[in-house]
């Protein structure tokens, strides 16, 4: 089946099955690196590596944002909208109201979490499909952002933000470190806390979780709140990279947000997440993007590639998981 199902899989399967998936993904990434480096050695320059690490950090957090709702068997199409709302709110607070940057960033994170919370509460109370609710709220949030800001970017942000965006630790951006730190926190959540494991239980079998006394509604709301918070984090990271709060942030997150966790072996049906896999999935995206950029090949290849990679990976996963799937389908029948 899938890669490391943290709270659940046995040690044996972590060693064998799970890592075969991760190793496979890592091998694909390595092959692409080999190809790109042999074509344009520039890609391994220290600046290029820095740029890649920076966008990788953002891709990882975007992937996490979807991963935490996939854990419950739901989805969140509003990640881009929540991200840009947080960004524009932070920009407004800092530039127009002169709020100190730590406070403004905190407020923006709160807004992201609140938006995610609203999604979760709507899903739980209406019992509606997460797809419809977050599709609608994506439109709602984005519309609200445009109405209030008229789509004008905030470019006079405090310099310390852009400084953070440019900061280099060797050839690595601290943003990658931030993303990895979030990964560690999520690993602790899903491995070692009652809440995280309840979320996974809800995703694996909602009925069984409910009958075991798990508060299903709360688990779903928490997952969506976390997703909103992570979307805000990803947005603010992008803002720091660009040095400005721009309404276009988040518009192209939808595909990568699903791509990273799904490539990494997180189940769409819920109940299992793979943090390492999501990181590797994001690395594949960042690699492809960087390679195509430095090769100066037309950008359309990226779109085409990402789509095909997604299709192939889920198809492969389906055939690999086919055995267990068939078995349980028969049991259910």
């Amino acid at each position: 089946m899938t890669a490391d199902k943290p709270a659940t899989a046995g040690r044996l399967s972590i060693l064998s099955l799970a890592s075969s998936n991760l190793f496979g993904l890592a091998a694909i990434v390595a092959v692409f690196w080999a190809i790109f480096v042999s074509l344009t050695p520039n890609i391994a320059s220290s600046f290029s590596l820095f740029a890649i690490s920076r966008s990788l950090g953002i891709d990882i957090v975007v992937g996490f944002s979807t991963m935490v709702v996939l854990a419950t068997g739901g989805m969140n199409l509003a990640i881009g909208s929540i991200g840009v709302c947080a960004v524009m709110f932070a920009g407004y607070l800092m530039q127009e109201l002169g709020v100190p940057s730590p406070l403004a960033l905190l407020a923006a994170l709160m807004l992201g979490a609140a938006s995610g919370w609203a999604n979760g509460v709507t899903i739980v109370t209406t019992g509606a499909n997460a797809f419809v609710v977050t599709l609608a709220s994506a439109s709602l949030f984005f519309g609200a952002m445009l109405i209030t800001t008229h789509g004008t970017p905030f470019e006079g942000l405090p310099p310390e933000l852009a400084d953070f965006g440019r900061m280099r630790w060797g050839f690595v951006s601290p943003m990658l470190a931030l993303a990895l730190a979030i990964g560690v926190a999520l690993a602790i959540l899903f491995h070692f806390t009652a809440l995280g494991r309840e979320i996974l239980s809800v995703g694996a079998n909602t009925r069984a979780a409910r009958m075991s006394g798990v508060r299903v509604g709360r688990a779903i709301v928490v997952a969506h709140t976390l997703s909103g918070l992570l979307a805000a984090v990803a947005g603010l990271m992008t803002m720091a990279r660009l040095g400005a709060a721009i309404p276009a942030i988040g518009r192209d997150w939808l595909l990568p947000s699903f791509l990273a966790p799904v490539l990494g072996g997180t189940l769409l049906s819920g109940g299992a997440v793979s943090i390492g896999g999501t990181i590797l999935g994001a690395l594949l995206i960042a690699t492809l993007r960087a390679g195509i950029l430095t090769l100066q090949v037309a950008n359309f290849w990226l779109q085409l590639f990402l789509g095909l990679v997604l299709l192939c990976s889920v198809a492969l996963d389906r055939y690999r998981g086919g055995y267990l799937e068939r078995k349980s389908a028969r049991v259910r029948a």
Binding site: A7, T8, T193, A194, E198, N205, R207, A208, M211, G271
Partner: peptide
């Protein structure tokens, strides 16, 4: 038990302990 008694894809440990996670944290 397959539909609502157990979480089939999760471990024996997780299935036995699901009701007490909150208490033993």
């Amino acid at each position: 038990r397959k539909g609502e008694g157990l979480i089939l894809a999760h471990s024996v440990r997780a299935n036995l302990a699901i009701t007490i996670w909150r208490r033993i944290a």
